[in-house]
Write a protein that binds this DNA or RNA. Structure first.
Length: 565
RNA sequence: UGGGGAAUAGUGUAACGGUAGCACGACUGACUCUGGAUCAGUUAGUCCAGGUCCGAAUCCUGGUUCCCCAGCCA
């Protein structure tokens, strides 16, 4: 709590927690929870909630539980549980022995329901779903009491027990809270507490055929776990009176529900439904496609947990909807990766260079710095020879203004190597440059000229004979529109998919030090960006995913120049 | 047109009756063996209209706009 970063400003939720701690409201305890429903993969929006809940616990010397809200066996699967556990852990959070499941409380919840029935506060209703909707009324008109509302306690008890026993078909009856069918808050118009579902639950099997609804279950889960601050998203604000009502009627431990705005990010979608659609329609390779805003997608893309945590800290917490610029997320990864990733040279679109005055067969091992931001990372040797590859876009036969790179007659530096001058351009029948003939200045070995002359630019390169082939996947934003839902003419968000969101380059060359690069490890390809070794990569076939480009001044100049034309 | 929320530079957020600040972005410039990083600077804001006050983003009144709610989803 007393770190300089967190004392500066408290968001409104932390302010509440701090105040409660000060007044000893919960006996000096702060207990939060992250309560995902295991029906999908976690995304960066969940990370916001995870960082909030675990962050509060960490900062206030409290506890944060990981709890699966598994009250709907039709939608939930073990696969999701596994991925969620992996993702939360990967993000860097620890729930120790407090991994819980709502389904572990089913018996207790059932007893609480019986208690409410006995108190005349709940009843079994035989209306069909359609009828329930009709009886509920509308936003502007009150609902009306259903004919079963006045059933006796005994009959309700009997019916509810038989619901549990499996005597009725799915959907035939429900248990409802008896509150107020005229309430302006529709959630209070006798909400459903239990529905009959003859479905196999991934944890309780066929033990139950009545399952609690969210409204009934969630507060109980919080209460049973002695949660103090039940943090959820804005859309549950309307449910808070109901949350409070259940807990008050039962007279049990009653946490405070606090709502905050969920995260929206530009150039992507965040709803589970839409993400699922992308997966199902095969528009991405899966939940872990590196273009997805899912935690596993970002992980495969090369994002670090540190960067995601930093991002979540920077976006803050508030009560109004907003859309964070994805550039901020990208800034956070760059900031982290700049300090931590080893530099390496890789040529994505190779253009052959022959150094005519360099002795055939000669190879020099030149020393290169692994990370200029971290002296302890040391140096490595990079082989240099007569035939090299440079980046195709680092050469222009007719360079425009402000293009500092290689051109006929121009001298540039090869990083950590020599100054070279382009003397001749070899072209194919289409007039395309296929090879450059150059000379080098032997006195510039290592990259400095003894006579002090300067060059305008430094290029990365690899030795043709020593470099390794690699596949590199260049990723861009998944959508080409800032707000993907902003689609015209009856189209939906999918019409805004960015056709260039994935570009696969299969004839890249990387320096030999990358030969044993392990999947998941991250590098900066000098002058290009941050890349991470793809999970499919192996020693014979190297594959890299681009996490994010470096900031690129030249690209901006180029863009500006194109706009002028 | 019922109820519940919310509005501060382009974006995200501070300021809790007392100089509207920070970050991202954009734009300058310095430096540089990454057109990277770093450093310096510029840009730009209190939804509107009244009121209270020496003083209002903050308090009051009235508007405007946006979000959420009519699942046996969460």
């Amino acid at each position: 709590m007393n770190t300089n970063e967190s004392t500066t400003r408290l968001d409104f939720i932390r302010a509440i927690v701090a105040e409660d701690l000060k007044t000893n409201k919960w006996g000096g305890q702060a207990v939060t929870r992250f309560p995902p429903e295991p029906n999908g993969y976690l995304h960066i929006g969940h990370a916001k909630s995870i960082c909030l809940n675990f962050g509060i616990a960490g900062e206030f010397n409290g506890l944060c539980n990981l709890r699966f809200d598994d009250t709907n066996p039709i939608k939930e699967e073990q696969e999701y549980i596994n991925s969620i556990i992996e993702d939360v852990r990967w993000l860097g959070f620890d729930w120790q022995d407090r991994l819980f499941y709502a389904s572990d409380y089913f018996e207790q919840m059932y007893e609480y329901a019986v208690q409410l029935i006995q108190a005349g506060k709940a009843y079994v209703c035989d209306l069909t779903p359609e009828q329930i909707r009709e009886y509920r009324g509308t936003l502007t008109e009150p609902g009306k009491n259903c004919p079963y509302r006045s059933r006796s306690v005994e009959e309700n008890l009997d019916l509810f027990e038989r619901m549990r026993a499996g005597e009725f078909e799915a959907g035939l009856r429900v248990l409802r809270a008896k509150i107020d069918m005229a309430s302006p808050n529709l959630n209070m118009r006798d909400p459903v507490m239990y529905r009959i579902l003859h479905a196999e639950h991934h944890r309780t099997g066929d033990k139950w055929c009545v399952y609690p609804t969210y409204d009934w279950a969630h507060g109980l889960e919080d209460s049973i776990e002695r949660i103090t601050h039940s943090v959820c998203t804005l859309e549950f604000e309307n449910h808070r009176p109901l949350y409070d009502w259940f807990l008050d009627e039962l007279g049990v431990h009653h946490p405070q529900q606090i709502e905050f705005a969920r995260l929206n990010l530009s150039y992507t979608v965040m709803s589970k439904r839409k993400l699922q659609q992308l997966v199902q329609d095969g528009l991405v390779s899966g939940w872990d496609d590196p273009r997805m805003p899912t935690i596993c997608g970002l992980r495969g893309r090369g994002y670090t947990p540190e960067a995601i945590r930093k991002f979540c800290k920077r976006i803050g917490v508030n009560k109004f909807n907003s859309t964070v610029d994805i550039a901020l997320l990208e800034h956070c990864v760059r900031e982290d990766l700049n300090k931590t990733s080893p530099r390496v040279m890789a040529v994505l679109r190779p253009l052959k260079v022959v150094i005519e005055n360099y002795p055939e067969g000669q190879v020099e091992e030149l020393e290169a710095i692994n990370n200029p931001e971290d002296a302890s990372a040391g140096t490595r040797k990079v082989p240099f020879s007569r035939e090299l590859y440079i980046e195709r876009e680092d050469f222009m036969e007719e360079p425009p203004k402000k293009f500092y790179r290689l051109a006929p007659g121009r001298e540039v530096r090869l990083r950590y190597a020599y100054f070279i001058t382009c003397t001749e351009v070899v072209k194919d029948s289409n007039g395309e440059a296929v090879e450059l003939r150059c000379t080098y200045d032997p006195s510039t070995r290592g990259g400095d000229a003894p006579d002090g002359r300067k060059v305008k630019s430094t290029l990365h390169w690899v030795s043709a004979g020593h470099s390794l082939p690699a596949e590199v996947r260049l990723y861009e934003h998944l959508f080409s529109r800032e707000n993907p839902d902003d689609a015209g003419g009856g189209e939906d968000f999918k019409s805004n998919l960015n056709p260039n969101s994935l570009q696969i380059l299969s004839s890249c060359r990387v320096e030999p030090s990358l030969g044993q690069a392990k999947p998941g490890s991250r590098y900066q390809f000098e002058r290009l960006g941050y890349f991470c070794v793809a999970s499919e990569s192996c020693e014979g076939k190297l594959v890299f995913n681009r996490t994010v480009t470096l900031r690129d001044r030249w690209a901006k100049i180029q863009k500006a120049q194109q706009q002028i034309r």
